[in-house]
């Protein structure tokens, strides 16, 4: 049998082979140990020496043809089997899921944002008790008994004379008593006043900042507030500083920002009153400081356009999870 005939016969058999099995047996028939190729090779040794190279080359070409044909066919078959299997495995990727998404309360989010902002500016967070004494909540802050300024705070009292702090300022006193200047602290926390309407709840959150050192001045205070407002209110609103009165600061300032319908009050601040510094044993001729404080609910309401503060404490999950 000559090579050409073998080739022809292979091609016709190969055409017929359409399965993995038939291709594998075809491979054995031709390329196996006792296969056609090896018998062709053994015949080559008997061929005349001058014909050997040419014949050898032809046999090798035939071998390559067989190998490549069969392996490419096998690959195709495997590919289509895989394709079939994969299409069977397909799922509906659109089935609805309800992931358990956690959420921070909007007030926490805003408190955190404000705390983070001031932490990055080098403030250290400080906490204090929510049940306070008259001294820390009022007297130490230069609010004497019966002073009309106490009318600004509708205070919750306990039978033993202690009270629920009406602001986070007692933390400033406690911090100044414990640490010496330079002091740069931020005190977030809950505060309480007996009041409830659309803009008041008997409990709310404040964050207060305090800086005490030598040579702290009003210009520093203004800059600190202006930079904060610029960071918190993204549309860079106009800011107004106007005189006000807090017994624990002098001068005292109320800060407003320009809203769509006029000025909106956002926080109070001022230079620490010398009596407050004296109360914690600091000499006001040597040290000065500034303090600022804001209601976190107020900032939350401005950020999320909430009109009734009481919504924040109803804890309706359709509401408090959306911050």
């Amino acid at each position: 049998m000559d090579l050409a005939q073998e080739k022809k016969s292979f091609l016709s058999k190969f055409k017929e082979a359409d399965s993995q099995d038939s291709l594998n047996s075809l491979k054995i028939e031709y390329l196996g140990k006792k296969g056609i190729l090896s018998s062709l090779m053994s015949r080559l040794s008997n061929a005349p020496a001058e014909k050997k190279p040419k014949l050898g080359k032809s046999i090798n070409e035939f071998k390559t043809l067989i190998e490549e044909s069969i392996s490419s066919s096998l690959e195709k078959i495997e590919q289509s089997a895989l394709d079939e299997q994969l299409s069977k495995e397909a799922i509906d990727v659109t089935l609805p899921l309800s992931p358990d998404v956690g959420s921070y309360h909007p007030v926490s989010l805003i408190a955190q944002e404000i705390s983070d902002y001031f932490k990055n500016k080098g403030y250290v967070l400080r906490e204090g008790p929510e049940i306070e004494s008259e001294y820390f909540n009022f007297s130490a802050l230069n609010i004497p008994e019966n002073h009309p300024a106490r009318d600004m705070h509708d205070t919750f009292y306990f039978e033993d004379g202690n009270l629920l702090r009406t602001h986070t300022s007692p933390v400033q006193i406690r911090s100044m008593e414990l640490e010496s200047p330079p002091l740069k602290i931020l005190c977030p926390g809950k505060v309480f006043r007996c009041d409830s309407d659309q803009t008041h709840t008997p409990m709310f959150h404040q964050v207060e900042g305090l800086v005490v050192n030598k040579d702290i001045n009003f210009a520093h205070l203004k800059n600190e507030i202006l930079e904060f407002v610029e960071s918190f209110f993204k549309d860079n609103p106009k800011v107004r500083f106007r005189p006000s009165y807090f017994p624990f600061t002098e001068p005292s300032v109320e800060v407003d920002i320009q809203g769509e319908n006029g000025w909106l009050e956002i926080m109070g601040c001022g230079m620490v009153h010398p009596n407050v510094l004296k109360n914690v044993g600091l000499n006001p001729e040597v040290y000065s400081g500034f303090a600022f404080g804001m209601g976190i609910e107020r900032m939350t309401m401005l950020r999320y356009q909430i009109s009734d503060i009481r919504m924040l404490f109803e804890n309706d999950l359709r509401f408090v999870t959306k911050g």
Partner: peptide, 19 residues
């Protein structure tokens, strides 16, 4: 007028550990 007074950046780092 508070608004007519200047503002100035405070360069102060006070370091004490956070609560």
């Amino acid at each position: 007028g508070y608004d007519n007074l200047p503002s100035k950046r405070l360069k102060l780092l006070a370091s004490s550990p956070e609560d």
